[in-house]
Amino acid sequence: MGLTHCFVLVIFLQWSYVKGDCGVVSKSEWDGLNPVHVQYLPRPVDLVIIQHTVTPTCNTDQRCAERVRSIQNYHMETRNFWDIGYNFIVGGNGKVYEGAGWLHVGAHTRGYNNRALGIAFIGNFNNDQVKRSMIDAVKALLNCGVRNGHLTSDYHVVAHRQLANLDSPGRKLYNEIRSWPNWLEDVSSIRN
């Protein structure tokens, strides 16, 4: 194998490692828009903020892709965000959708965007029951994030409501994530 081939292989492997899809539905697969600007997130990240979208749920691949596109349109056209605000979005079909992703700063929690991943569950979990498939998908994403170097092994999971005066991620999802092994009850050590 020539030097050029070796160089190309090394670049591809590095890109694959950093991209680390983790089974995520890519922006191209859900027909998302490219961001108008990006800022890179320092990695590995040690904070994951769980939230909900307070939108209708979705249960099929088609409906979830439509819902994610709708959220991105709202964020970019109405809120003037550079991209969809969440790093990842999970649908009722049990799939995780790429938002800002592992590498880019999102716009999900004022004061924490530059150091945390925001993961949003599609629905209103004050009303909706959280599906086991959604929980399992996010847990698999987080495990993959640790394996691929995107998350520290001792990362913390917190609820959006702990850092902002909101109900997010809703009572039912909040109750669920409080049982996760990386849950951080007392956020005083990470508060801005």
Rank of each mutant, 00 (worst) to 15 (best):
A120N: 00
K131D: 08
K19G: 08
V90R: 02
V45F: 01
D128T: 01
M1I: 15
L163E: 11
Y97H: 04
D83T: 11
K19R: 14
M76E: 04
R110T: 14
L103K: 08
Y174L: 01
M76Q: 05
I135W: 00
V54T: 05
I71V: 09
V8P: 12
V45C: 01
I89A: 08
G106D: 05
S70M: 11
D61A: 13
H104K: 12
I190V: 05
N192F: 03
N165H: 13
V96T: 03
G123Y: 03
R147A: 14
N143P: 00
F88C: 11
A164K: 14
H37L: 06
G32T: 02
Y155R: 02
D154G: 03
R67E: 09
A140G: 06
M1H: 15
V187T: 03
G92L: 12
S26K: 11
E98V: 06
A120M: 05
V96Q: 02
L141N: 09
C144S: 10
D167Y: 13
C58M: 04
D21Q: 11
N143T: 06
E66V: 01
Q162H: 08
F81H: 15
D83R: 07
D186V: 04
L3A: 12
S153C: 02
D61E: 14
R147L: 12
N124Y: 11
F81V: 15
I50E: 00
Y112W: 09
V90K: 01
S179H: 02
